[in-house]
Design a protein around this nucleic acid. Structure first.
Lengths: 213, 213
DNA sequence: ATAGAATTGTGAACGTTTTCACAAACTCCC
DNA sequence: GGGAGTTTGTGAAAACGTTCACAATTCTAT
């Protein structure tokens, strides 16, 4: 009924993110109250699922009425750890790194890229929107100095394991990995992978097996 | 024991992609045979899981020995539909689009970007490595002419639903979406989402709830 | 005040995915 | 050729996630 004693599944966390996004849309439209039904209708899930997901963390609704949009938004933000802001390092200032740096949704959700590192001497020293690119050789000092919480790795797969080992050595516990490689990390470190080739392969499989629908 | 009669879970498909990648590494190293144990050790799964995944599609191993690397690679490629090559359209030639276009792992897996579309008159007409950028207004004709199988959407969230509707109207059945929006599509169309903000939020949650480990 | 309508929160049922455990099948070596 | 040692393929068990169904609670209208 209060904090978060249970084990929370990955899918629940992903759905909370979704709900938060929908709530923000509702809030913009000036809607003050939503039902689990309405929240579910916006994305691929069910009203019961919405209620189950939320019930893990507490009871935020009013029976007969629904959920107060701003309150539920605040609660989900708190649950996801988004009430604070996170200091993020971007390792790799190539094409993917550049795209991520500009990605507006990071900032609005409290993820601040405070550090950019690259290997290329031509890029080191450049200023990206107020952030000076530093050489990846200085990774350990830089991440410590800039008090980074989360590292985003947008480096080639050949070097990503080396980079990870160094990132882990300065006690960073959360990593978002764009290289198509399974990283080896101690098990108190969380890694999330964004593997675009894998996504395309899943589409390929779906196309080939479309028969069974 | 032969083709693919069963329902195949999404996680199984993702793991097949992983196995394929590992097999390719083994092949490069000249390893000719692997056990389910070795295949599992390379990524976050178990030997039993590997065997279960494969057994859905057939029996490719030899008891007492393991799996022949090149053969299993071929089989997984066939299962995933990677024996053929797929024609891909990239809608949106902004930062993310550019990064994707250059991403080397697409080509090596048989995904050929044959079409690039953008909205910006300054970009339309430019040649990207042999591919002329066309205006998004010509989406329907262009996708038909170039016989596209899969569309990658790297457009702003405000317009992505419009673009999807048009893509769907020319009978495209597979979409990879980079906009942080839940798309509405007919249910014979498969959509995979790459939502980077959501990944960061999952990391945030993990950090905040690290206590329970 | 009370009846009626709406909607939550949650135990229990159900379905799916993962893990276990072991017989069957193969290899290798003496 | 036979025995020891591996490793697969797969039913059965366990764990996990989703859906169902309904009592409890709140709101609204009269």
């Amino acid at each position: 009924m209060a904090a978060s004693p249970q084990k929370v599944s990955e899918s629940t966390v992903r759905r909370l993110s979704l709900y938060l996004r929908f709530l923000e849309e509702f809030e913009e439209k000036g809607v003050t109250t939503v039902s689990s039904e309405e929240l579910a209708g916006r994305g691929g899930t069910t009203a019961a699922q919405v209620r189950k997901d939320l019930s893990i963390f507490g009871s935020f609704g009013k029976r007969g009425l629904g959920y107060a949009v701003p309150l539920l938004g605040r609660e989900i933000r708190r649950i996801l750890g988004l009430s604070r802001s996170w200091r993020v390092a971007l390792v790799g200032a190539g094409r993917i790194g550049a795209a991520l740096f500009e990605y507006p949704n990071f900032r609005t959700r409290g993820f601040r890229i405070v550090t950019v590192l690259d290997h290329d001497p031509k890029k080191v020293g450049r200023l990206w929107d107020g952030t000076r690119i530093r050489h990846v050789d200085t990774l350990e000092e830089t991440l410590r100095e800039t008090k980074v919480d989360i590292a985003i790795l947008a480096v080639p797969e050949e070097v990503v394991q080396d980079v990870v080992d160094r990132v882990v050595s300065v006690e960073i516990k959360a990593i978002l990995n764009f290289a198509p490689t399974q990283l080896r990390v101690p098990n108190d470190v969380v890694v999330n992978d964004v593997n675009m080739a894998m996504e395309l392969e899943a589409l390929s499989f779906a196309l080939v097996n479309r028969a069974l629908r």
